[in-house]
């Protein structure tokens, strides 16, 4: 049954290569965590999150430390759950803001480190938030001189 072995081998090679490519795309583009989500979550309430989406990065001092896990509307405000990498502690007085990369780039979450002794527990809330900067509104204000 050499022919049969050959058949199984070639089909196997094809399937492995194909599935590897598919897995690469899903992990790279879809940012799927194959090994489950590490770390813990905290949440924050924003009045306006601009174009923030699930999967957007969360940074501290320009370093990626997690991503946006989910976004939900709650009392006409945006409740954003953040997935934070393990080992990183966020202080009680930290400030989260929605920022934009470049002028028209992607939205992301920036956390500026606080100094308080209290540390936010997993599932806790970051109280101080800063909503997205409305660049259009800014530009029109500037252009029409209503500063």
């Amino acid at each position: 049954m050499k022919g049969r072995l050959n058949l199984e081998l070639t089909v196997g090679i094809f399937m492995v290569i194909g599935l590897l490519c598919l897995a690469y795309l899903s992990i790279k583009m879809g940012k799927i965590d194959v090994w489950g989500k590490p770390g813990y979550t905290v949440f924050a309430i924003f009045s306006d999150i601009g174009g923030l989406r699930t999967g957007s990065p969360v940074v501290v001092a320009g370093v990626d430390i997690g991503l946006v896990d989910s976004i939900r509307l709650e009392d006409y405000e945006a409740r954003v759950v953040l997935q934070i990498n393990p080992g990183l502690e966020i202080h009680e007085d930290a400030v989260v803001s929605v920022k934009t990369r470049g002028l028209i780039g992607e939205k992301f979450i920036q956390i500026s480190a606080g100094a308080a002794d209290e540390i936010i527990k997993p599932g806790g809330r970051i109280r101080q938030t800063e909503s997205a900067l409305d660049i259009e509104a800014l530009i029109s204000k500037y252009a029409f001189g209503n500063l």
Binding site: L25, S26, K28, M29, G30, K31, I32, R53, G55, P57, E106
Partner: peptide
């Protein structure tokens, strides 16, 4: 190259 790729794509594109 790869950073921009990852940042601006998500699972829906793959699906």
């Amino acid at each position: 190259y790869f950073g921009a790729m990852t940042d601006y794509m998500d699972m829906s594109d793959v699906l």
